[in-house]
Design a protein around this nucleic acid. Structure first.
Length: 640
RNA sequence: GCCGAAAUAGCUCAACUGGUAGAGCAACUGACUUGUAAUCAGUAGGUUGUGGGUUCAAGUCCUAUUUUCGGCACCA
């Protein structure tokens, strides 16, 4: 008999070889029904994997977060089995569960087409109906290599495992896959799924490798949950900034103007200007000094900075004039280094914080361009902080806090904080170990000391130093780098930056690169999606729409109101077109104007306004002054 | 850049296996003008992304190319 300890501390005895499923069934049949897998001494166990020793266990039910992963992982295997039945030569890469489902990378021997997904789905359903038991077995590395001798991808994976590793495989019917587990017991438990898309994906994520075909899918425990998820996918299309940007006339992308070169339309530019003013003030308050530098610079400048050797592939080609070679700047750090050098600096001057709204040009791969999210000409508020070593932590932390403030003001949600470190194996980083170790240690200490949770990402650093990236998840489900604070000991070296210390000697300052809220382009794409085009009043391109009930009778009053609003710094528009009232109201609503004001006899008589807030049905009548102060207050508070 | 899919009026979309390119909205013209999501009638709008080809005939088939979309790689 085995002693099984439950999470509440109670202990029960079971026969040796009992499974999670068996234990769940012994407790109640309803628990058995919803159990998905379990932890046995913190190791993930399948429903039907025998437990051989005394253990403490935790049953995972379909309500637990881990359950979704187990289900989708099993769905990936199910799909692979179906593909193997339909395409006999198919070989498989990796097939994990992901945030919203699963994928599997496949070399099917032939090119899969989108219409094949339906056939694969059908075959999956057939396997589900066959109720194939998913069983685990363990074997040696040699045996595993023998088992997968016809699949070079699995061979490669197996070969990289440590020599004495026990390798587990999962078998369901005729299909066996290399896998750590856990799984869901039987194919019959994967009931509600859908295959979503077909895409290319490089083997092992390396563009030098062969490209496999990746099928994305999603699996859920109930029909309703699947329907809800598919509905969310549909709703995302309504939030797509490319669609909203067109409808609300925010920006324009045009081939004749150039791929990835966005043009801001009046409404879009209005929002951008509000953001620019907001950021300027925020930075001013935080002690930043604003400068302005050109978008064009000599190639030499970028050779000094190291961008020419590390970043050239992302730069537009050079231009020659008067025996000098110029480039369009992809980054502004070199210019700010020169600005620092424009004067002799004392230790008393530091920190010096230079900020600038800069336009940069980067040659981004054509396939990566996407609306405003990824463009080739971008404008952002960039900053470089020149600090003494003893000021590093405080300045990084202040910069970080400023970022958090801006993200909160904008109503965005942080997904996670990333600490991007060097991967020594990769050649793209500068090679001064001492500086790397110091920089990485300082950032880690800082995050730890301030209880900031973060994920370490090796190999994601900038070539000149490690960085803290603030990742935001967009309403489209994309995770995007919103802000960044980067520690740089290299550029001060390359530009021979100095300050005079209290000892009268020259010292090296340290540079902190800071990106506050991404670029205006990317920020706009995120905001559009976040708010579904209905900007909070402080950001809205048009804040008020004044609509007279009758053009003849109420036009004068409507004009008077509109002028008054504009005098009070509100972005108000008057609709005096010869159209019906209902038509104008509908348009004010579809353009998502925060305040729609319809004025007629009642308002004229009492010197009032009647407003309807976007998203609400209620019509509210108030005195003009009260209305103005209410909206102004809302704007100042950046209310959402 | 790579893999897959797509491109029709300003916008959203039709046009069965090749057989005279249509609709709604927007625009323009005229009429109608009082309370919270579309007043009515008419007019105009296209070398079907672009270049080749097959065919009696191409939006539809083939081919090249450009761009867009879903991903990968890269990345703010």
């Amino acid at each position: 008999m085995l002693k099984i300890t439950f999470p509440d501390g109670s202990i029960k005895e079971f026969d040796k070889g009992i499974t999670i499923e068996g234990i769940a069934g012994a407790i109640s049949s309803s628990l058995k029904k919803i159990s998905v897998a379990g932890y046995v001494n913190d190791e993930l166990y399948d429903l039907n994997r025998p437990i051989l020793n005394d253990a403490s266990i935790k049953i995972i039910t379909n309500k637990d977060e881990e359950a979704f992963e187990v289900l989708n992982h099993s769905a990936a295997h199910l799909m692979a089995q179906a593909v193997k039945r339909l395409f006999k030569d198919a070989k498989f890469g990796v097939g994990p569960a992901i945030r919203e489902g699963f994928y599997y990378d496949i070399d099917a021997g032939v090119q899969l087409k989108e219409e094949d997904l339906k056939k694969i789905e059908k075959e999956m359903q057939r396997i589900v109906n066959q109720n194939e038991l998913i069983s685990r077995s363990e074997l040696s590395k040699e045996a595993a290599l023998e088992l997968f001798k016809h699949d070079e991808y699995k061979q490669e994976l197996i070969n990289e495992l440590p020599e004495n590793e026990i390798i587990s495989v999962y078998k369901q019917g005729e299909f066996t896959d290399l896998c750590r587990g856990g799984h869901i017991g039987s194919t019959k438990n994967v009931k509600h799924f859908k295959l979503l898309s077909l895409a290319g994906a490089y083997w092992r994520g390396d563009s030098n490798n062969k490209q496999l075909q990746r099928i994305y899918g999603t699996a859920w425990f109930t029909k309703e949950a699947l329907a809800t998820h598919l509905n969310i996918l549909e709703e995302r299309k309504e939030r797509d900034h490319r669609k909203l940007g067109k409808e609300l006339r925010i920006f324009e992308l045009n081939n004749d103007a150039g791929q990835g070169l966005a043009m801001w339309l009046p409404h879009g530019y209005t929002v951008r200007k509000v953001l620019e003013d907001y950021v300027y003030k925020l930075e001013k308050k935080a002690g930043y000094l604003h400068v302005s530098t050109p978008a064009l610079g000599t190639k030499r400048l970028y050779e000094i900075s190291g961008h020419w050797s590390h970043y050239r592939d992302n730069m537009f080609p050079v231009m020659e004039r008067d025996g000098e070679t110029f480039v369009l700047r992809p980054m502004s750090c070199p210019h700010h280094m020169i600005v620092y050098k424009s004067d002799l600096r004392s230790y008393r001057d530091l920190p010096i914080r230079y900020a600038e709204i800069v336009t940069q040009h980067r040659y981004e791969a054509s396939g990566s361009l996407s609306g405003l999210e990824r463009v080739r000409a971008m404008t952002l508020t960039d900053a470089h902080l020149f600090v003494r070593e003893d000021q590093i932590k405080k300045e990084v932390l202040d910069a970080y806090n400023l970022i958090i403030e801006a993200i909160n003001d904008l109503g965005l949600e942080i997904d996670y904080i990333e600490l991007a470190l060097r991967d020594k194996e990769k050649g793209k980083f500068h090679d001064n170990d001492e500086l790397w170790n110091l920089a990485e240690r300082l950032l880690k200490e800082l995050l730890d000391e301030n209880n900031i949770e973060y994920k370490e990402m090796t190999g994601e650093a900038a070539f000149y130093g490690p960085k803290i990236d603030i990742q935001v998840r967009t309403a489209m489900g994309h995770v995007i780098t919103m802000s960044t604070v980067q520690l740089d000991f290299l550029l001060p070296e390359r530009f021979d930056l100095t300050y005079i210390g209290s000892d009268g000697e020259k010292h090296r300052p340290v540079v902190i690169h800071r990106g506050l809220i991404s670029t205006w382009e990317r920020l706009m794409s995120i905001l559009l999606e976040q708010y579904k085009g209905a900007f909070p009043t402080w950001l809205a391109p048009v804040q008020l729409k004044v609509i007279p009930v009758s053009l003849d009778v109420h036009q004068t009053y409507a004009k008077k109101l509109n002028d008054l609003f504009i005098d009070n710094d509100l972005r108000s528009e008057l609709d005096l077109r010869e159209e019906k009232l209902g038509y104008k109201i509908r348009e004010a609503q579809t353009k998502k104007v925060p305040y729609q004001l319809v004025v007629g006899d009642n308002e004229v008589e009492n010197n009032q306004v009647t407003y309807r807030k976007y998203g609400e049905q209620a019509q509210v009548t108030v005195d003009i002054e009260d209305f103005i102060s209410m909206v102004r207050k809302e704007i100042i508070n950046k209310s959402r």
